[in-house]
Design a binder for these strands. Structure first.
Lengths: 216, 216
DNA sequence: TAGATTGTTAATCGATTAACAATC
DNA sequence: TAGATTGTTAATCGATTAACAATC
């Protein structure tokens, strides 16, 4: 099955929306509600669920509780999602204390840095030397890592992670990282978060923006 | 002209790649080189440039210096790109010191917080109270802002920014912000950076990953 | 000139949407 | 039953790619 990458993002969005609707006391939703909520057509909502083998009632829409449960299971939320952070600078340590992580069941189990003693311990997350990262990954079967080291160290850390068996990487270094499929096999997914790129994008778009008239 | 949003991201990527190629001493590039470098087909490279009225030589490819200059101009890099940050917590202050910004000509000119005295001054970026943000935006014609306040304050800050005239917003709060086009007109572009969503996405994809065989 | 690369047109591909039969 | 919503098929839309004429 050729899995489109956008559909997964939408699944997460449905789930988050549903949790809020549930908190408001709703018990069922229609594809229309979900479409409005995340900004897609109702047809796409139904199609997404259909692709995931999630069924509703021909007349009564979808049961919120069941839907949330099914989405959570699909997204692997039925077990703790552990990850590590390489690079305990400002961004790395900020992420360690990121509140959203705990509410979403994401758990940072360790941080790594070339100067672990210089990092003031964050909550109860242990900070180790980068040298120990590979061993830690293997021992604890870590599958996801965040890279927040300086650009010039990023490629190196990437290779360390992949060789140690990490399968998913979120990269904050401003150089785009790719899997050189020479290492290991190409069984590692890398997601680049490039803040500078996002800003450049914004600056471009506002430049194009006409003063204030109707659209198109 | 209906401007696809992905093309702009590619323009930034071309530009960054070109700067590195230039540093290596190259003087001309072919659509093939650029395609390989950012992972698209050479046809798309030529199409992008064509859409932007950038011309090459039928035989000699593109002159790197001229190309960089043209891309920079398109991306508005010929003038300083100023922005503000609302929310001077860990992520906000981390971004203020983000090295990539200075190398890319992005300049954080002020930070705002509900407790500016609690923020230790970052380099030479002034920190003011959130109450002063609207006035600052207007006085200095600020067009781009980053939101790094807690989720429960995000919608509020968004509205303040839009009303004061900000046209582009990069939002790090974990609730997705949209332009309620009731305020003002809908002339504000919002880009959401949702780290939790990215991680959920990663966790999903690695779950689907088969042990280790050829692709497809 | 011959060879190579651009610029562009037509073909392809995939994702989204419209529409409707099935059915609760 | 009548009405409303799902699940799915066919139509649309847009972006990417293949291919090739133009041309340096």
């Amino acid at each position: 099955m050729n899995m489109n990458t956008e559909i997964i993002v939408r699944l997460s969005k449905y789930k988050r929306l549903l949790q809020k609707l549930k908190a408001l006391g709703l018990e069922r939703v229609f594809s229309n509600n979900l479409g409005d909520g995340i900004g897609v057509s109702p047809a796409l909502v139904r199609k997404d669920f259909s692709a995931m083998n999630i069924q509703g009632n021909k007349r009564g829409g979808y049961d919120i509780n069941i839907l949330i449960e099914q989405l959570n299971k699909l997204l692997g939320k039925d077990q703790p999602q552990e990850l590590i952070i390489a690079g305990c600078g400002r961004i790395g340590t900020a992420l360690m204390q990121y509140e959203e992580f705990s509410t979403e069941g994401l758990q940072v189990v360790a941080g790594f840095d070339i100067n672990p003693d210089g990092v003031q311990n964050v909550q109860d997350i242990p900070i180790y030397h980068l040298n120990e990262m590979a061993a830690f990954i293997k021992e604890n079967n870590i599958e996801v890592g965040i890279i927040t080291v300086p650009d010039n160290a990023a490629a190196n850390v990437l290779e360390m992670m992949i060789k140690a068996g990490v399968k998913g990487i979120l990269n904050f270094a401003s150089i785009e990282l790719k899997t050189a499929n020479s290492l290991n096999c190409n069984q590692c997914t890398i997601q680049n978060v490039n803040i500078g790129l996002e800003l450049e994008h914004l600056f471009y778009r506002i430049k194009e923006m006409p003063p204030c008239e109707e659209k198109e």
